[in-house]
Write a protein that binds this DNA or RNA. Structure first.
Length: 591
RNA sequence: GCGCCUGUAGUUCAGUGGAUAGAACGUCGGCCUCCGGAGCCGAAGGUCGCAGGUUCGAAUCCUGCCAGGCGCGCCA
């Protein structure tokens, strides 16, 4: 089940060290990597260096000692100590052949691990406010989170993808009043657009729909408001004659406000739903699915926030000051400022509902929680981690991955990305221009810490030359070869019946070696939460395949060699398909 | 001002403290009698932002500068 070659080498090294009298506790972490030059073997380690630091013995002494006892391992055809402190491993062709067979038999299972087995992890990502369509930055988060979820399932985790809908708070109120203003505009009224409203044109479309679907209901409520105004006028007259009681005035104003908030609530909920629908469509087009959608308003309905506050109160993590209720962030993170959970006016802050939200997640029994946030939330991480501790969980239960924001450019011109101002390029448009696969590959080939420039012009221009097509082309080529074999009535045999020993050219060996490294790549991508390692791997594998393809024929007069090479390309096909699947990129038979 | 992130080829980016720093795109020059030329081969292109430090060894770790991004609300 465990196909990791690095793990195998590690185990052998541990064993050898033990036999040489070095106990496991004294062992530094073992790093095994691919050396830059072929002469330095397939894999190498600097263990003699690190051991010499630990034990005080010379690296050369340790290296020679380890190397001599490793020589008989079947895994290697050769093991060399190279001064000053490297051990280079040359993988035996026996192992490479076995690996090839394993891939053909196990298929996608070949990269499956069980290290996360029995553990539940939740990844929360995108979670864009339902105030407008997804833009390019959300695309980055979507590609990243989705792929990470795939990768973590590969190593055995039970993974849940969640989208948190922030449908409460200031930005939603602004959305409501913006739709309201657009609606009035549609009805020919001249209104001043709310200054802090959402100016994007998509709200005009939504206002049109509101008018179509809710028109009659709204006007009824609006009539109510007008009625109130009439009453108010009368009362003003009365005021002159018999004086105006402030009580009455207040009551009237309240009625007016109530009617207005009814309208806003009605069309607001409608707008939120419409926008969410569009977001879901965009995500579907991008190939991203969520297992769970949870809204902030549902937490309010469950009274989750007062509940969590009284829990924190009991623990003595809260205090009142200036009429507000504060959380002692500084208790957990010296240097951090305390934060307000309940405002002077009685409203809860976003932080308060976010604590309730994370408590809700933790109660659902996840062993790990991963939040993927944009860099604009960087300052928010420490207080959330403090909250996790206050809830009684170790800080590391929550991992926050911060991705740097995407700067959209067209040539040299920057396009600002403000949802509020409506000056942003929707993800949908980007996908129309460059395609889903290219966009995903672009996002996933970079570390999320990189501040990346997305040049639409360049992306479009590069599309035919895009690395993703290079990889997909390799897969399509293999499919074509296999098709060709079928047409020539070549029956593809079982791996056991094929003489894999015939795969002797350097290109074939390189390919087999690359294939045998795949499980480690997946494992390391999962461990470091870095999907981009896999795009790098795919490009390397595709390069090796294309090189092989131009230098050798798969289908030839030599029947046995043909069979062996068909095995090889089939294994490559499985590997490419598997990894593209993890990245959420389509795997074309033809292009 | 403080905090986090980033600075690597003309451009966009990879690069677990290891050996002579890589890829793609772009530029220049080659390769189709043959399973898909969306391919292959070659060349040019680098003070790894700057300056110190740590050590057998630094693009990588530490310190200080410089430049850019993002934060620093009883906004979300």
């Amino acid at each position: 089940m465990n196909n990791s070659i690095k793990k195998l080498i590690e185990d052998v090294l541990y064993k050898t060290c033990k036999e040489s009298g070095i106990s496991r506790e004294h062992l530094p972490p073992i790093f095994i990597n691919q050396p830059k030059k072929k002469e330095w073997g397939d894999l190498s380690t600097n263990l003699p260096f690190s051991l010499s630091q630990k034990t005080g013995k010379s690296a050369s002494h340790i290296g020679k000692l380890l190397t001599s006892s490793l020589e008989n391992e079947k895994l290697f055809s050769r093991v060399e100590f190279i001064p000053p402190g490297f051990i280079n491993f040359f993988i035996s062709s026996l192992y490479l052949k076995q690996t090839l067979k394993k891939i053909l038999i196990q298929k996608e299972e070949f990269t499956q691990f069980s290290s996360g087995k029995g553990k539940k992890v939740q990844i929360e990502f995108v979670s864009a406010n339902p105030t407008g369509p997804l833009h390019i930055g959300h695309g980055r988060a979507a590609a990243f989170g989705d792929s990470l979820a795939n990768i973590l399932s590969k190593v055995g985790y039970e993974v849940e993808r969640e989208y948190y809908v922030n449908d409460v708070g200031g930005q939603i109120k602004r959305l409501f009043s913006s739709v309201w203003a657009r609606l009035k505009e549609l009805e020919g009224e001249k209104v001043s657009f709310p200054e802090d409203g959402y100016k994007g044109e998509y709200l005009i479309e939504i206002a049109k729909q509101v008018k179509k679907e809710l028109g009659s209901k709204l006007s009824e409520i609006a009539k109510g408001v007008d009625l109130e105004k009439e009453i108010a006028k009368e009362e003003k007259i009365n005021q002159i004659t018999e004086g105006f009681s402030s009580e009455k005035k207040m009551a009237q104003k309240k009625r007016e406000e109530k009617a207005e908030s009814q309208i806003l609530g009605l069309l607001g909920r409608f707008a939120v739903n419409e926008i969410l629908k569009e977001i879901k469509v965009d995500l579907k087009v991008f190939g991203v699915r969520f297992d769970s959608w949870i809204s902030e308003s549902s937490l309010h309905q469950k009274k989750a926030i007062p509940e969590i506050l009284s829990y924190l109160q009991e623990k003595n993590y809260l205090y009142e000051k200036d009429g507000a209720l504060w959380f002692k962030t500084s208790l957990f993170l010296p240097g951090e400022e305390d934060r307000v959970l309940r405002r002077r006016n009685g409203d809860y802050t976003y932080f308060a509902s976010d604590i309730a939200y994370h408590q809700d997640k933790l109660r659902r029994g996840f062993d790990r929680i991963i939040d993927i946030w944009g860099a604009d939330h960087i300052g928010y991480v420490p207080r959330m981690k403090a909250a996790i501790q206050a809830l009684g969980y170790p800080e590391k239960t929550l991992q926050v991955i911060i991705y740097q924001l995407v700067t959209l450019k067209r040539g040299k011109k920057r396009i600002s990305a403000s949802t509020r101002e409506g000056k942003f390029i929707p993800l949908k448009e980007v996908l129309d221009e460059v395609g889903r696969d290219a966009a995903r590959f672009f996002f996933l080939s970079r570390t999320c810490g990189s501040h990346l420039d997305f040049d639409l012009e360049l992306a479009k221009k590069q599309t035919p030359e895009n690395p993703v097509f290079y990889v997909q082309y390799a897969h399509a080529r293999i499919c074509s070869i296999l098709e060709n074999a079928r047409e020539n009535r070549i029956k593809i045999k079982n791996p056991d019946e094929v003489k894999l020993d015939l795969l002797t050219t350097p290109e074939e060996r390189e390919l087999m070696k690359e294939l045998s490294l795949l499980p480690d790549e997946v494992y390391e991508a999962a461990k470091s939460l870095e999907p981009h390692r896999l795009t790098t791997y795919l490009q390397e594998l595709a390069t090796l395949f294309h090189q092989f393809y131009t230098r050798h024929r798969v289908i030839s007069e030599d029947r046995e060699l043909t069979q062996a090479r068909l095995m090889l390309v089939k294994a490559i096909k499985i590997a490419i398909g598997d990894v593209l699947g993890l990245l959420g990129i389509s795997v074309p038979q033809k292009m």
